[in-house]
Simulated scan of single mutants.
Amino acid sequence: MEKNSLIGKVVHSKAGRDMHKTFIIVGILSNEYVYISDGELRRIEKPKKKKIKHLKFTGTVAEEIRDIILSEKEVTNSKIKIFLQSADIGKEV
């Protein structure tokens, strides 16, 4: 799998305090860990480090946010929050 192919994917947390919450992958640390953010509790300035095996992938990709991250521009918390709310996937599972 290409390293940047995970960035921008919408995921649900399967374990931990943030279980059942929805996030967007905003960075890749290694083959095992990624950084996730929801723009609210876990802001883009301090994303959560999470094991990939503790994430459930939704099949949705935040294309606009993914493009901003890959072009190395700054993503805002409001963009992430608005995407998760408007896509109606920000609801807890």
Rank of each mutant, 00 (worst) to 15 (best):
M1C: 07
E2N: 13
K3I: 11
K3R: 14
K3L: 12
S5Q: 14
S5Y: 05
L6G: 08
L6E: 11
L6C: 04
V10Y: 01
V11W: 00
S13K: 13
K14P: 01
K14S: 12
A15Q: 10
A15M: 08
G16M: 04
G16Y: 12
R17N: 14
D18W: 05
D18G: 00
M19P: 00
H20M: 09
K21Q: 12
T22C: 05
F23P: 05
I24Y: 03
I25V: 07
V26C: 08
V26P: 07
G27P: 05
G27N: 03
I28A: 04
L29D: 11
L29W: 01
E32N: 07
V34N: 03
Y35L: 11
Y35N: 13
Y35I: 03
S37C: 08
D38W: 00
G39C: 08
E40W: 06
L41E: 13
L41H: 13
R42E: 02
I44R: 02
E45D: 13
K46S: 11
K46C: 06
K48H: 10
K49P: 04
K49R: 15
K50I: 02
K51R: 15
I52N: 07
I52D: 05
I52W: 01
K53Y: 06
K53Q: 15
H54N: 15
H54A: 08
K56W: 09
K56L: 11
K56N: 14
F57P: 13
F57V: 14
T58D: 01
T58K: 05
T58R: 09
V61I: 15
E63L: 14
E63V: 15
E64V: 07
E64H: 10
I65C: 02
I65H: 04
I65L: 02
R66F: 03
R66D: 01
I69W: 01
L70Q: 09
S71T: 15
E72T: 03
E72R: 12
K73W: 04
K73H: 14
K73M: 11
E74I: 04
E74H: 12
V75Q: 00
V75W: 00
T76I: 01
I80G: 07
I82R: 15
I82K: 14
Q85I: 09
A87Q: 14
D88C: 12
D88A: 05
I89W: 08
I89D: 04
I89N: 12
G90M: 11
K91E: 14
K91W: 10
E92H: 04
E92L: 04
E92Y: 01
E92A: 06
E92V: 05
